[in-house]
Design a protein around this nucleic acid. Sequence first.
DNA 1: ATTGGCAGTCGGAGCACTTGAGTGCCAGAG
DNA 2: CTCTGGCACTCAAGTGCTCCGACTGCCAAT
Lengths: 340, 340
Amino acid sequence: MATDRSLDVLRVIVQDYVASREPVGSKSIVERHAFGVSAATIRNDMALLEEEELITAPHTSSGRIPTDKGYRVFVDQLADLRPLTTAQRQAIETFLGHASDLDEVLTRTVRLLSQLTHQVALVQYPSLGRSRIRHIELVPLSTLRLMIVLITDTGRVEQRHIDVEAPLDEAFLGEVRAKLNGMLGGLGMADAAVALQGIVDSFQPVRRAFVAEIVESLGEQVAATRGEKLLMAGAANLALTAEDFGGSIYPVLEAIEEQVTLLRLFAEMEPDQHGLATRIGIENAAFGLGETSVLASGYTSTGGEFARVGVLGPTRMDYPNNMAAVRAVARYLSRLLGEE
Amino acid sequence: MATDRSLDVLRVIVQDYVASREPVGSKSIVERHAFGVSAATIRNDMALLEEEELITAPHTSSGRIPTDKGYRVFVDQLADLRPLTTAQRQAIETFLGHASDLDEVLTRTVRLLSQLTHQVALVQYPSLGRSRIRHIELVPLSTLRLMIVLITDTGRVEQRHIDVEAPLDEAFLGEVRAKLNGMLGGLGMADAAVALQGIVDSFQPVRRAFVAEIVESLGEQVAATRGEKLLMAGAANLALTAEDFGGSIYPVLEAIEEQVTLLRLFAEMEPDQHGLATRIGIENAAFGLGETSVLASGYTSTGGEFARVGVLGPTRMDYPNNMAAVRAVARYLSRLLGEE
DNA sequence: ATTGGCAGTCGGAGCACTTGAGTGCCAGAG
DNA sequence: CTCTGGCACTCAAGTGCTCCGACTGCCAAT
């Protein structure tokens, strides 16, 4: 059974190992931390921790390092959320303070977070799932080519081109535009998908082929844009922690580029009572990220959209600092986007 | 003076070294290539090449590896553009064959190119510099918030939000919209920037404050979007060639993320008579990329927009294959975007 | 111009040895 | 029951050494 002190020992093992990347032994513990007991006692505690698979020895006779399970206990029970330094708070203020539109806010956020944590930062775009159609624009690009622009009330813009069979008629285009906006404006994406079904029939038969093309494209846009998107920054930080990944950071870089993987991972993560979600090491093995940890928090934007911000890095990361940074940024973002 | 055969020797040194990452010696050359002369003769040629700083010896007595200058000579004089395999040609066809809009074409292109070359692939977005304004849309997001959307004839969409002081008046908004489109539609970005100056004065004084806000934002959009944008894929490939970078790939990853750096690099590159531009190793030192080579080719899209596609990788890369891939993809892209 | 031969160089592998950090265990004290 | 000091043991990593092999550079002969 893990005693109180043995958990303290686990804490300092995690702290020291994260700081130095070197297995930590009983002697160095009593030297660097005032436990008031001898090294032998610490050794007994370490034997307990090892029995519970919270720490392990890389070589028969060397210091111990935390296991993934050990990190998990550390994060769940031992990590006092270190408050951000004032310098960090200021960085958030100045970085995110004056940003003009959503895209810029998110771009800055992800960069800021990667700098605060020295890890890869991730920001998940709000999906169009719960947003509503604000406006639809039809723009002729040439006589036979049409651009369809879909604008949502969350400020996102999706565009697509189609080729039409008959030359475009500006007046009729205006009619279609008005009708589409009238019937679809304000609808959520799910409703819009339904409403699109009936629109074609409301036109004169001779026009229906043309309208059908537009409606089909719009349907694709509505469907396709329900997918989430992801912003990323700080990939270079992975190169600095390359030793923490078994030899190569290739799989990590690959997973990062394959955004779908990360989106699924994000989707699976359940935030705890503090709004923070953590996945440590082996828990991500199914995503090919068995040696990385991911911290995520949600943020809410106008219209109740829920999306996520987080960081990804080696299992051996500074959890207290990174958790605090993720939470602070997520909160700031919620405030910024909520008060609009 | 470099003889004919000594250049052949340089060629096989580059080829073998690129293939094996091991210094190549005179003996292994005569074994693997039918030169019809002895190793001693090859050694004489190698002495010549070393004198001209085309090859160098990492250790006093070991094989030779090409210098950056050696790669340059190889690329300029010795690399026979290896034709793509039929498998590669097919990959281009099937990958790029059916794509609906510009964004998708470019996304697929950059992925394809990274797979063909096993390097980092880059595609530079057409800038708005030479494109023309097709349409301007004003969309009220709330009573005091307005979205301004700028659509160009090359199919790009730029958006921005502004806060206005007085509640929005739908009718007046329509008037402004019509006027803006009338005065700016069809103008190039440079002309538009000028035309914007005079627009405010054409409104009634009482409305001018409001219009001025819109015009200011549009001006920013026109100015800001002259900047180029960049797509990237295959960063994970850098992890596989990590040994080719002095220890760490950090600077490379950093430069890649800092897109501005790459855009400037691209801008500096001058294509040769085949439409290919090459920068090898030390030539990129000014960009912090002294150990990487960049290959680029231009492509033209509708409206004469000129932009670039290329790859970036370690100096020790397979130039013939990569140059052929870049050129083939650029040509295919020109055809695809030119015939629209 | 080319060749074979030969001495010389140097990195890297293999090996024995040492060092030191660290463990596990035990018997004794509190 | 907990803690402690002591002691034997283990093992990774560093050091110094030799040996081997792959090369080069040079030279005299063809």
